[in-house]
Each structure stands twice: as structure tokens, then as C-alpha cells.
Amino acid sequence: MSHSDEITAVLKEHPQARRDSLIPILQQIQDRTGFISPQAVQMVSDELSLPTSKIYGVATFYNQFRFQPLGKFHVQVCRGTACHVKGSAAVLDMLIRELNIKPDETTRDGLFSLEIVACIGACGLAPVISVNGEFHGGVTPDNIKKILDSYRAQAQKDQSQNDAQEDKAK
């Protein structure tokens, strides 16, 4: 399903929608496509007769909306109280530096996206990060690179497997 088909599908679920449906529509679009694209904002604007600036204004008001597609590996950094006490700020700083993106952004190669989350209920492992739902406890700025490298290696492996399969198919 193409990106615009996904959005059309969401809009179809809201016949005769008005401005009060804006947030549920945006949530569903994000659920299906992973983010709110300029195209999505334009299509919602046409459907609801709302200015694009207004939709963008509403969407940026809430932390839950993101405007870049998720990376292959979605990194969530817990900034809850326990993790904070155990030094999650330094972990986040390191991630920002290592990935060269800010929270809610995606690296240019599409590999990693970064998100700050409140407590993810693993305080015993603090400070904790989660990558595609996989928890890493007791992270330190020093072992961040190692964790990221393991995913980079995995991505490379997947890629070469894909390439091999494609070659076979040919």
C-alpha cells in the first residue's frame, strides 16, 4: 500500500469528519505510516477544510506526533525518574552525538530514529533504552556505541542477505 493509499484508508474510516476528528485521524495516520508527512497534512487539510498551518500547529503541540519516518531501529530513551537518577541525561547526550540527530528525528540513512519516553517500567535496569522493543539495561555513555554498532552490523547482515536473495532470483 502506498503512503497516500494508507492516508486515504484512514480518511475513509471517518466519513463526513469535521475538525473535532483531527486528532484521532492524525493518530491513526501515525499508527499506520509511522509519522505525519507533509502529504498527510495536505490530505487531511483538504478533507477537513482546515488550513495546513493549523493542522501542523495542533500536531506539534502534542509530543506523540512525529514528522519524520521511523528508522529501521527505533531507539527509545527512558527519561523517567529512576533512569534520570542513574544518569540517563548523559546517555541521551551520547545518543544525540553518536547518531547526529535530535530526539524525534531520523538519521539520513534511515537506520535509527530517536525518541524520549517517560518511564517504561523497567526501573530495576536503569538507565534503560529500548531498541525496537528490545531492552538494554544499565547502559552507560561508553557502551552506547557498542549497542548501536550491533544494530548496524545486523542491518548490514540483513542487507547482504537481501542482496544474495536478489542475485539468486536473477
Binding site: P51, S53, K54, Y56, G57, T60, F61, Y62
Partner: peptide
Amino acid sequence: SCIDFVGR
């Protein structure tokens, strides 16, 4: 409606 408040 070209401009609006963005962010929070």
C-alpha cells in the same frame, strides 16, 4: 491562515 502557533 498561513501562519499559526507551532510547538508548545
